[in-house]
Design a binder for these strands. Structure first.
Lengths: 194, 194
DNA sequence: TGATTGTTGGAACGATCGGTCCATGATGTC
DNA sequence: GACATCATGGACCGATCGTTCCAACAATCA
């Protein structure tokens, strides 16, 4: 109630991420969002314009955050990096809400505005490009054959990444998800006998 | 408007499948459903109880339908069957709505009722069991090693299957999806030199 | 201190939500 | 042909949706 904003924007975004992750865009109500973020309706609309604007900012922030998490596993062989990246999406098992907001948003695309659709596609595209770069590194270091299909490889591991995120909701435990990653890594030629 | 129902139930279900596939459970309104199915509100509530009841029946019918589609590729090697099963989920490119309703529902689980959640999980479980059976066949015929991790393999290919269904929404063309399947099949040891 | 600035809480808007209800009217049975 | 049956169309319900608006208020600057 004063001349300057009374909220920490990054905390607001973080809270909104959780709401959208759990409820999706369509089902997340303004009340849910004000309650979770602590913002009043006025402040929310003042700052973000409307629900769609908030969603777009949330999605962009989430994408950035996810990219940082993926970047945290940068050392080692390309194969090791890919494996570590996938492991980074195993849900903590703790109170965290399962699922990847980008994946969820992509499946919700028919419901989204043009801006929301673009943000979702961009998020998926950034994830995919990150995975593609790991594959390219593998080719550069000789871990992978030069004619490796980078795009197809990236799409495949994006699918696995989304599966890692979402399967806990379908009832998969952490153990079987780790073994699933092992299976997925079979599609990456073994490093040994080259 | 007379003593007996005036609608073809399978057509109603088919229309409702499309609505839920496109909008998801939460965002699909009763108006959407009556409009798409041709049923009046009264008939819809009379026959299915409520929106949740309709959703559960739709999900069950969809699961059955998907299982039939998967069953259509039964001959050949286990590896060939797996490959054909994945190909069966490539969207027609035609007017059909992309995405697998089961996958979509699983990502929406936090929003669903207990019954809806159970139906979604059951659908995913049936798909997974189908894939697991292909893997088991592969083990039985000697295509796969006896210590192959059946569960992990099934989860992996379920992830790929969902990716095949959903990635068109994220902007993937049919060609790259086919190549993605090729990559995924690298996780299935080549049949040749055994 | 007085005027200005700009955020804030909360009331209120029309629209739409899922769900209920009843009068209507065609059908099948006697 | 009179009756009972039952799906049907459409009006209607309270609740909630996204959004707008305004009075109240603290902070800043003169």
């Amino acid at each position: 109630m004063s001349g300057r904003p009374q909220f920490d924007e990054s905390i607001v975004i973080a809270a909104a991420i959780d709401v959208f992750k759990q409820r999706g865009f369509a089902a997340a109500s303004i009340s849910d969002l004000t309650e979770a973020t602590g913002l009043s309706r006025s402040s929310l609309y003042q700052r973000f314009g409307d629900k769609d604007g908030l969603f777009r900012e949330v999605l962009a922030a989430y994408t950035e955050r996810v990219l940082q998490r993926m970047n945290s596993a940068q050392s080692g062989t390309a194969r090791g990096r890919m494996e570590a990246t996938l492991h980074a999406f195993i849900s903590d098992g703790s109170s965290k809400i399962a699922g990847c907001l980008i994946a969820r948003s992509c499946s919700e695309i028919p419901e989204l505005s043009d801006g929301g659709t673009a943000a979702a596609r961009k998020g998926a595209s950034i994830q995919r490009e990150f995975l593609a770069n790991i594959v390219r590194q593998g080719i550069a270091t000789g871990e992978l054959a030069k004619d490796t299909d980078v795009d197809a490889m990236a799409w495949h591991y994006l699918g696995v990444l989304q599966a890692v995120s979402n399967f806990p909701k379908a009832g998969a435990g952490e153990a079987v998800i780790k073994r699933m990653i092992d299976v997925a890594m079979l599609a990456w030629p073994a490093p040994a006998t080259n």
